[in-house]
Write a protein that binds this DNA or RNA. Structure first.
Length: 425
DNA sequence: GGTAGTAAACACG
DNA sequence: CGTGTTTACTACC
């Protein structure tokens, strides 16, 4: 608020912020439009997001109202709800409430996710205990939610993080920008709560690779790593492994980091060999969400915060080659895709945000498998693009900004792109 | 009367 | 102390 809303610019200090913060908290708690998503990673703090169902226009589910509020089913789950003084709390917590569960379940949310049925939030909550805690924890709600949404309904899932203390403001912003894509690198062993900065960066990269390439590819045709994008897209298009998502969501079996690139797929478990409109929606929604999440979405170059961690980030974006197990996983995931394609992915992963212009330069243009029908992918890309663009326009226009990435020193320069000296062989 | 903003009390970790 | 919940008060439409 302080950073994004002029009015609050000078109201960031603890003194002057007490009032409006209190008001915010008050409204968050009071109105069912907002739902709290517990985030163990941040201790006492939680994520606040818009109720996918919109919530009631009126008040939040108060104890008595909770039972009546069928639509939102946002029962009070706060364990300490009954802590109030006896006089006030005549009625004990309703049995309808799910005590202990911090996660209100709105109808239909986890539906698509086969087993997770009972507890959507469990799908991510456990992850909080893992290294990617903060990130994944914040992501899941979104993903789950959006996964639930139908194509026509891209509900805004604006999240407000109360974990300001744990996540640097800038990082928080970054995270918000890429909400829903954090899952892309949930398992990254590099990630940790303290390293949220780097993770944020990583996330951002992944987000770009997933949500921008399409749009960016068309918009920014002057890229050096076009093949990469195409490859990625192809992998995305072909890969469908719901179980992967399962594993991703399972704390016990953290997914390989490289999956972050293909994790987009998990998002579209039902998808066959091409991205479903649902997925597209998801991506678009995330983009839109990004805009919504911050008054100055891309305005602040991620590079700014990314710089310090850029070096470490890159490796994490193309780990496929580093770890045998990762490689295996990725190749298996990309079964339909030729090995060369996978390789191209590996090579290009770090520069995902580049465009997918039809004229690949440097890198592995000559490596592109003959069976890799670029046109086909391009078609898909165009299709996706249209969708995304439309979505974006509907939301007020495109808001892509890849500027920060280009100047990143860590990335191979244009002239050296074909050398890959930095690429593990 | 409904809604919204603010202040405040209170509980919890 | 930060966060979250709740109540009370006030102002506006």
């Amino acid at each position: 608020m302080v950073r994004s809303v002029p009015y609050f610019k000078d109201k960031g200090d603890s003194n002057s912020s007490a009032g409006w913060k209190n008001s915010i908290r008050h409204n968050l708690s009071l109105h069912s439009k907002f739902v709290k998503v517990h985030n163990e990673a941040t201790g006492k703090s939680s994520w606040w997001m818009l109720n996918p169902e919109g919530g009631k226009s009126g008040k939040a589910p108060r104890r008595r109202a909770a039972s009546m509020d069928n639509s939102s089913k946002l029962v009070k789950v706060r364990g300490k709800a009954s802590r109030k003084k006896p006089p006030l709390q005549s009625a004990p917590e309703s049995s309808a409430d799910s005590p202990g569960s911090q996660f209100p379940k709105w109808p239909g949310s986890p539906s698509s996710r086969s087993n997770e049925d009972s507890d959507v939030w469990n799908t991510f909550r456990p992850r909080t205990s893992s290294n990617a805690s903060t990130i994944s924890a914040r992501l899941s709600p979104i993903l789950t939610e959006q996964d639930d949404l139908h194509d026509e309904e891209l509900l805004p899932s604006l999240m407000y993080s109360s974990a300001s203390s744990n996540v640097p403001p800038t990082v928080t912003e970054e995270l918000e920008l890429i909400d829903g894509l954090n899952l892309m690198s949930p398992s990254s062993s590099v990630l940790s709560t303290q390293q949220s900065a780097s993770s944020g960066q990583i996330q951002r990269d992944s987000s770009f690779s997933l949500q921008s390439p399409n749009a960016a590819g068309q918009t920014f045709g002057n890229s050096l790593f076009n093949p990469v994008d195409i490859s990625l897209q192809s992998s995305v298009s072909h890969f469908s492994a719901p179980q992967t998502l399962e594993s991703l969501l399972t704390p016990s079996s953290p997914p390989p980091r490289d999956v972050m690139m293909t994790q987009v797929d998990p998002v579209l478990p039902q998808t066959g060999n091409r991205m479903s409109s649902r997925t597209l929606l998801l991506l678009g929604g995330q983009a839109a969400q990004s805009k919504m999440s911050s008054g100055n979405p891309r305005g602040k170059p991620a590079e700014q915060q990314a710089e310090p961690v850029g070096a470490s980030v890159l490796p994490s974006t193309l780990p496929i080659v580093t770890s045998p197990q990762n490689t295996a996983s990725i190749t298996s995931l990309k079964a339909p895709v030729s090995a060369t394609t996978a390789q191209s992915v590996q090579l290009g992963s770090p520069v995902l945000l580049s465009s997918a212009s039809p004229a690949p330069l440097g890198l592995n243009q000559d490596r592109l498998p003959t069976d890799l029908d670029i046109d086909m992918y391009m078609e898909n890309l165009e299709c996706d693009m249209d969708y995304i663009i439309n979505s974006e326009l509907m939301d007020g226009g495109l808001d892509f900004n890849f500027e920060p990435i280009l100047p990143t020193p860590s990335y191979p320069s244009t002239s050296q792109a074909s050398n890959h000296t930095w690429v593990p062989s």
